[in-house]
């Protein structure tokens, strides 16, 4: 039953991810006084891409071909470890939150390698920038995560969320810091404004798009889908760790239904905030990103220290 639940939940993750992207686009369009595409547009794009013949550069190696599959499966694995609608997942035990960060690193490693494979200038540029940003974002992310895991004294996400639920509504200063740190990192890691712009192919500003410039057809579809899943993963992490209320603790139909509704509502709200901030702020220069990320790291560190100093009772 638990394993079945884990598989269903992973499926939901993968299927709902494009919808979230559609919703963000819709919100952004409305906020910027443009006519919005349908919410289902990302699905149509994926469908179109999977039914096109992929074109691959002549000098591409086998690494270039397998990379989309590696990225996609790493993201599915990552999705399977994060509780979406129910806690107590067996998959969160087989891979805890540090492994989750490891999956992100695996996907990124291959993505950056594929960017270098063709030998164009854009690919290398994107890979270099992506690895720079991620090597600053990863420590900050783990700082935020450590705050949670030290408070819950477990790195298993299911148990950690269970711990937050059991505690009830307590205002923990450490969690406030960690929340803001995680939001900043989520924006950087999923390539949103102000760190990267997912909608641009302007050569000087591209990061993520520069790496995947040579991909087409089903390969591009897989990469796009994986980054949609990644965006949703960060959303769910923020929503379910810091505001877990509504998530199902028993596997009854009503509890699961409520959980689904609540996570959808939470994600819609988060996405609205993201759209709002993307409308309000402009993209930063590349060498401002370090300041942004060290601020995130500082927040994570403050969260950890306030947990250690203020909250550990002995």
């Amino acid at each position: 039953m638990n394993w079945l639940m884990a598989i269903v939940q992973t499926g939901l993750f993968v299927i709902l991810a494009p919808l979230l992207t559609g919703w963000i686009k819709w919100c952004k369009c409305r906020l910027q006084n443009r006519r919005a595409p349908s919410l289902l547009q990302p699905y149509r794009d994926l469908w179109k891409l999977t039914h096109k013949q992929p074109v691959v550069a002549e000098q591409a190696s086998w690494l270039f071909i397998i990379t989309p599959y590696v990225i996609f499966s790493a993201m599915i694995l990552a999705a399977s470890t994060v509780p979406l609608i129910a806690v107590d997942l067996p998959t969160s035990a087989s891979a805890d939150v540090i492994v989750l960060v490891g999956f992100f690193a695996l996907a990124r490693f291959f993505q950056a390698l594929a960017g270098l494979d063709i030998g164009t200038a854009f690919g290398g540029m994107g890979s270099s920038r992506e690895m720079t940003i991620s090597s600053l974002a990863e420590p900050a992310m783990l700082m935020a995560v450590f705050t949670l895991t030290m408070a819950a004294s477990t790195t298993n996400l299911s148990f950690a969320i269970g711990f937050v639920l059991d505690q009830g509504i307590v205002l923990r200063p450490s969690f406030v810091f960690a929340l803001f740190a995680l939001i900043l990192i989520a924006i950087a890691e999923t390539g949103r404004i102000p760190v990267d712009n997912p909608a641009t192919h302007l050569e000087l500003t591209m990061i993520h798009e520069a790496m995947i410039l040579e991909y087409s057809g089903r390969h591009l579809a897989l990469i796009e889908w994986a980054s949609e899943v990644k965006l949703m993963l960060y959303g769910v992490l923020i929503a379910n760790i810091f505001f877990p209320w509504g998530i199902a603790q028993q596997f009854t139909w009503s509890a699961l239904g409520d959980a689904l509704l609540s996570i959808v509502a939470k994600l819609m709200l988060l996405a609205l905030f993201l759209a709002l901030s993307e409308t309000l702020f402009a993209k930063m220069r590349l060498f401002r990103v370090q300041e942004y990320l060290s601020f995130a790291y500082l927040l994570g560190l403050l969260g950890l220290l306030s947990h250690i100093i203020l909250e550990v009772s002995r």
Binding site: F109, L113, S135, M143
Partner: peptide
């Protein structure tokens, strides 16, 4: 925990370094 963060930084930078190594040696033209 700060030393653990240093470990993360090292691991992340190591990944960047080996993308560089593998990318320049084996990939591209």
């Amino acid at each position: 925990p700060v030393s653990a963060a240093a470990l993360t930084l090292a691991a992340a930078l190591a990944a960047a370094c080996f993308v560089k190594v593998y990318g320049t040696i084996f990939l591209g033209l």
